[in-house]
């Protein structure tokens, strides 16, 4: 390179810096104002006691809100429900999604796209609409679930499908699985399609076909996709809100609360803003931890 060229380069480099900054800054401004500053606000606010109506009347309480959380029975119920939803979602959505993906990949020859389209469809419907549709299915008077149970002579729960928290948490899971399993299926299917045909041919020579080949050869090969699927499901399970908000409002007596709905209740119904912030910080820590795990796993992939 001659001298002249170097000069042009350094000129265009500074020019690049200007245009690069112009391109990068809007994204940073938006994320800073509406995500990072509120995140810091949540942390700061969690050390105060204040309410929505007396915005200027903040009282320093130190770790008081966190101590309150550890003694709050309903906070633990909400956290426990989130973990139940995480576990059940992984089994129902990732597990069944994997089976469906495997069948669509190699198990059937006809109608692959039709099945894939049908099963994925609920993903585009808003969770509120999904909840309302399932509300009529679970309804004790007009619901088809009761009608089906009665028509085959089975008894139905006396408090209705959503009145007893031991049952309603599972009804929430069935609805969540209805909406999200197709998403997991599509994600895992993309991973399966990356597995080359030769691998299966080689496996067949070694005597591994069908379910056996799937278990011992395919699953280990799509390990990374499965990890991503499990992480996305876990993150989704901590964000769950609409199903519970529409089905039970967290009741009866807070038995079906999750962190999201409990934060909403504390902030906007009870106006305990400081306490809601402390609960939010706990959610924030869980979310960032899961995000960090996702980053680590996607780098490996």
């Amino acid at each position: 390179m001659n001298k002249n060229n170097t000069q042009t380069n350094s000129f265009s480099l500074s020019n690049d810096k200007v245009s690069a900054t112009i391109l990068l800054v809007p994204a940073l401004i938006f994320c800073t104002i509406f995500i990072f500053i509120p995140a810091i606000g949540t942390i700061v606010g969690s050390f105060y006691s204040y309410s929505l109506t007396s915005m200027n009347n903040w009282k320093w309480v130190g770790f008081g809100n966190y101590v309150k959380a550890t003694q709050d029975e309903y906070f633990w119920v909400a956290l426990k429900n989130n973990f139940i939803i995480v576990f059940a979602s992984i089994v129902l959505q990732v597990g069944v999604g994997t089976i469906l993906a495997a069948i669509l990949d190699r198990g059937i020859t006809h109608g692959k796209i039709i099945f894939r389209t049908i099963i994925f469809t609920p993903m585009v419907i808003s969770s509120v609409a999904v909840s309302l549709i399932w509300l009529i299915i679970y309804d004790p008077n007009v619901g088809i679930l009761n009608a089906i149970f009665k028509s085959v002579g089975l008894s139905t729960p006396s408090k209705g499908w959503l009145g007893d928290p031991d049952i309603s948490i599972w009804m929430i899971m069935i609805t969540a699985a209805w909406q999200n399993t197709g998403f997991m299926m599509v994600l895992i299917l993309a991973g399966l399609q990356g597995v080359s045909k030769e691998v299966y041919d080689a496996a067949e020579i070694d005597g591994a076909t069908g379910v056996k080949a799937f278990w011992y050869i395919t699953l280990p090969m799509i390990r990374n996709v499965l990890i991503v699927a499990i992480l996305i499901t876990t993150i989704g399970a901590f964000k769950v809100f609409e199903f519970i908000f529409v089905f039970t409002q967290g009741g009866p007596s807070n038995a079906t609360q999750v962190l999201g709905t409990y934060i909403y209740l504390q902030a906007f119904n009870l106006l305990h803003m400081g306490y809601a912030n402390a609960l939010s910080v706990i959610l924030l820590i869980i979310a960032l931890f899961l995000g960090w795990l996702q980053l680590k796993s996607s780098r490996k992939a």
Binding site: A27, L28, A39, F238, N277, L283, L290, G291
Partner: peptide, 24 residues
């Protein structure tokens, strides 16, 4: 650092910043 910030932003759910966002 910017990329890490973006990933962090992806991880943070609206429910975790609800009160300050509403106030703002």
């Amino acid at each position: 650092f910017v990329y890490l910030l973006i990933v962090a932003g992806f991880a943070i759910p609206p429910a975790a910043v609800l009160v300050p966002l509403y106030t703002m």
